[in-house]
């Protein structure tokens, strides 16, 4: 698969789900003719038009029935362990179908990959019913689940491909809109369970995931101008957690910060807090994310602003916290 700066710009235009489906899934289809894709009237929603045109027999449409979609995916995989991808909005593939996910993926460990797109507030004014802001919490509590969360379009491609290499259930969380801001402007090494350090600074370590990686990097640039130096880490794997990188941060930083477009309860911040709770003499942890209320309805930035998730707000919060 070709990766160069021009292509990275092209992938960014497609958004995370467009790149994941149009590039990543197409690549997988070439490598693995046994792979199947299940949708719930979501060929278009999951940007799978090109995939469907090329491989119509490999796409099974369950109709608008996400529970059935996940059950069918399990049945398809049950005989020979083939990889089956179930693709639609994050909110529906996880929350609507949660019992089917728990039973078939977590318990029976079928080789099913959930690809949830438009997580966080990306569904904008379709609002609460289409926002996925607790999906990591739900899936993280389930045994056997691997959870990947992409920071940009190139990483989204790498996530769906990496999910295929994991033998067992995976939830790939995609977020953002078309023209997804670039985090990785050149090819990079993606390993499940190994976080990527994108910037190093001795004062604060910021663990970010999804669309918040770009915001955290921009916040770090603002802070650097004020003399506060941040390490910024892309936590593309939420489960299993990269505890080595956490241990390093515990030893070297004065303040730990998590940033996610997800509830501050049960997501990346929750996972880090759980890890720290068993340690002694750890730096303070500030969890930035979706706070415990449903915000006013509107576009992506409007929602982010209400929860303090834009780069300037993140920088301001870190400044305040570091001076406490």
């Amino acid at each position: 698969m070709a990766i160069n700066p021009a292509l990275i710009k092209a992938y960014a235009k497609l958004g995370q789900k467009g790149a994941a489906a149009g590039i990543g899934m197409m690549e997988l289809a070439k490598r693995d003719p046994d792979m199947r894709v299940v949708v719930a009237d979501s060929v278009a929603i999951a940007s799978l038009d090109r995939f469907y045109t090329n491989y119509p027999d490999r796409v099974i449409n369950a109709g608008i029935s996400e529970q059935s979609m996940v059950g069918i995916a399990a049945g398809l995989s049950s005989e020979d362990g083939r990889a089956v991808y179930a693709c639609t909005y994050a909110e529906f593939v996880v929350t609507r179908a949660l019992e089917f996910v728990r039973h078939n993926l977590a318990y029976h460990n079928f080789n099913v990959k959930l690809v949830g797109n438009s997580a966080g507030f990306a569904m904008e004014t379709l609002s609460i019913s289409h926002w996925a802001t607790e999906d990591i919490a739900f899936t993280r509590a389930l045994p056997n689940m691997t959870i990947l969360s992409a920071a940009d379009s190139l990483e989204a491609i790498k996530c769906v491909i990496a999910a295929h290499e994991v033998k067992g259930p995976v939830y790939v969380r995609l977020s953002g809109l078309l023209n997804c801001p670039i985090v990785y402007d050149k090819d990079f090494d993606f390993q499940v369970g190994k976080a990527n350090v994108l910037r190093e600074g001795e004062d604060v370590t910021v663990f970010a995931t999804g669309m918040m990686v770009r915001e955290a990097l921009d916040a770090a640039a603002l802070l650097s101008a004020q003399g506060v130096n941040c390490t910024v880490i892309d936590m593309h794997t939420i489960k299993p957690m990269d505890t080595d990188c956490l241990d390093k941060a515990i030893q070297s930083s004065k303040l730990l910060v998590t940033v996610e477009e997800h509830s501050v309860i049960g997501g990346l911040g929750g996972a880090v807090a759980e890890y720290l709770s068993a340690k002694t003499n750890t730096p303070r942890l500030v969890r930035i994310g979706v706070n415990d209320f449903f915000c006013k309805l509107g576009d992506l930035r409007f929602c982010w602003e209400q929860h303090g998730l834009t780069a300037p707000q993140i920088a301001e919060r870190i400044t305040k916290e570091i001076n406490k």
């Binding site: 199947r36 299940v38 099974i60 369950a62 529970q67 059935s68 979609m69 996940v70 059950g71 069918i72 995916a73 399990a74 049945g75 398809l76 995989s77 049950s78 005989e79 083939r82 019992e99 089917f100 039973h103 078939n104």
Partner: peptide
């Protein structure tokens, strides 16, 4: 859990 098996069965029959 009631209602869990039919979709699994459909997947099995399709493949």
């Amino acid at each position: 859990s009631l209602g869990m098996e039919m979709s699994f069965v459909v997947g099995k029959a399709i493949i």
